[in-house]
């Protein structure tokens, strides 16, 4: 907490990197637009071709902002969970929140053929997807809260979360088995994740959700530092564990739930980014780690999205596959590089 200087430099460097990746991100796509043209267009609001303006303004910029918000949401919920559970492998997927959202969407898309009834008239429009994902995430969240209220031990909560995740995955599999090919495809595409399906209206709602989700983190910032020494020490230093646990569940629920609702499941960002932040900033101080994770999360997801565009190709890869392909080796590397628990 005395190395404020170098941390500030790193934060500024991270912001510059994120900005660079933002520009890189919006300059990459199936249609080639010169970078100079983009700068000029953004500056003056006038593009030399109207198709470029449409591509940049209605597609690439919302997508880049979505990447930034999703990166922030997932990383911050991951960091909270890792510190609270004192478990380096904790992440939004672990509490079953993402699976809950997945279940909501699965029911929306596939329950029709499985049970013979449909929600939203069977339509799978974007808002229907978002609402059912949110409902799914909140349901799992309520179940988890109920457990958290009964169970005092955090490790038990973590295991229960894992079991909820497994159970929802199993229900999704059952639904998938009974649904027809078209619906299965719709769900599978959702489960691959997508950053590019949002308009400005949805982006505003997403931004609001992320801002609300970050509030508990800011309020309890000091408590997260005390939690580094474990629950009992934290309590002995005046931290109300009960309140902190609720704040953590609500915050991760909103952040990870909203992200999954708007973008579909995006793996590994929540687990890997807090570790990168610890590695780069070499600190355990959450006053630095939270902003650091947010910046790195945004940067990593911008980069992953740029990679998924497969420069100089008209194809795009599913974002969830890209984050998994980059994230999984990274977590393995972190584990092998040194004792994971020591890094923590």
């Amino acid at each position: 907490m005395d190395k404020g200087g170098s941390s500030t430099i790193l934060i500024v460097a991270g912001l510059v990197l994120t900005l660079t990746l933002f520009v890189l991100n919006i300059s990459i796509g199936s249609v080639y637009i010169p970078v100079g043209e983009i700068f000029q267009g953004l500056w003056s609001g006038e593009f030399s071709r109207s198709s470029w303006e449409t591509i940049i303004n209605t597609y690439r910029i919302p997508k880049a902002f979505t990447a930034i918000l999703a990166g922030i949401g997932l990383s911050i919920s991951g960091l909270q969970m890792q510190t609270f559970f004192r478990n380096p492998l904790a992440g939004p997927f672990v509490l079953g929140i993402s699976s809950g959202a997945g279940l909501g969407v699965a029911i929306l898309v596939m329950a029709g053929s499985a049970f013979g009834f449909t929600f939203f008239g069977g339509g799978v429009g974007i808002w229907a997807t978002i609402i059912s994902a949110t409902v799914g995430a909140i349901s799992v969240l309520l179940l988890m809260s109920l457990t958290a209220w009964k169970v005092k031990d955090s490790m038990t909560l973590l295991i229960v979360g894992l079991m909820f995740g497994s159970a929802t995955s199993a229900i999704i599999s059952v639904l998938a088995y009974f649904s027809d090919a078209e619906q299965l495809k719709t769900f599978t595409i959702w489960s691959m994740g997508s950053l590019g399906s949002m308009d400005y209206g949805q982006l505003q709602v997403f931004l609001l959700a992320i801002l609300i989700g970050v509030i508990p983190v800011i309020v309890f910032l000091k408590s997260f530092n005390a939690m580094l020494l474990g629950e009992t020490y934290a309590e002995s230093m005046g931290v109300n564990i009960h309140r902190l646990r609720w704040a953590m569940i609500i915050s991760t629920g909103i952040l990870a739930g909203a992200t999954t609702a708007f973008c579909g499941p995006i793996a590994f960002i929540g687990i890997a980014v807090p570790h990168i932040a610890r590695l780069v900033f070499k600190t355990s101080d959450h006053r630095i780690l939270f902003p650091a994770s947010a910046i790195i999360g945004a940067a990593v997801l911008l980069l992953c999205d740029a990679v998924s565009q497969m420069p100089s190709s008209a194809q795009t890869l599913p974002i969830n596959s890209v984050t998994s392909l980059i994230g999984a080796p990274m977590v393995i590397w972190l584990i092998l590089r040194r004792n994971f628990s020591k890094e923590f």
Binding site: K222, N225, L228, L229, G230, Y233, S284
Partner: peptide, 29 residues
């Protein structure tokens, strides 16, 4: 001072001792 083992290896001694001030500091610590 408990028997619990501290797992946060990234903390420095100065930072750890400073954490002791937690109940006395403001919300940012």
């Amino acid at each position: 001072v408990l028997t619990e083992k501290i797992t946060s290896a990234n903390l420095t001694v100065g930072q750890l001792v400073a954490l002791g001030r937690t109940p006395h500091t403001g919300w940012l610590g």
